[in-house]
Amino acid sequence: PCPVSVASRSGQQIWESFSQCFTPAVREVVEFAKGIPGFQELSQQDQVMLLKSGTFQVLMVRFCALLNPEERTVTFLNGQTYPQSTLRGLGMGTLLDAMFDFSENLGALRLEPDEIALFMAVVLVSADRSGISDTAAVEQLQEGLIHALRSLIHRRCPEQSAAIFPKLLLRLPDLRTLNNLHSDKLLAFRID
């Protein structure tokens, strides 16, 4: 839920409430990660490292559900819908443009919710490995999740899975680019 209401508030206040939206969203990714079979068998340090380098990318996949690429609008969980132009004024213009493009590409694959969830698990364990102590364990976990994702898609649509699966894996570098280009965007928090 995002309590952003443009009408009565200053740009700074909108920016702060938009920033607040990230806190619960990040916590949900942490809980999601702990539910990935095998993730909690990694060392705690490696769990933290993967989350720090992968959470932004997982959020990008999650936020796709809020975006309507055809109408270029964003609908927050509280039901408020904003055209891209309005949110561009918040200073996230380039990130939003990139998110709309990514959302369009991912949406074209018409994935089911369970496939998207498994894809997000793959995204997380495929994140940048610098700082990981046991890369072999992470790679093994990644292979298992990729295999499960391929099987899940194949089971649902055997004839198209040969086309869908490679396209889906091609979204991973897109997400890494999004992360490298935009995770340094600034958020603002009021401290009373």
Binding site: T23, V26, R27, D184, I191
Partner: peptide, 25 residues
């Protein structure tokens, strides 16, 4: 006076993750 803390998205994400793991130790 109200003060504002500005941090990058990446730092904000790292901060919440560190907080979460510290809390659950």
């Amino acid at each position: 006076p109200k003060t504002h803390r500005v941090m990058t998205l990446a730092d904000h994400i790292s901060h919440i993750i560190t907080q979460d793991f510290a809390r659950n130790q």
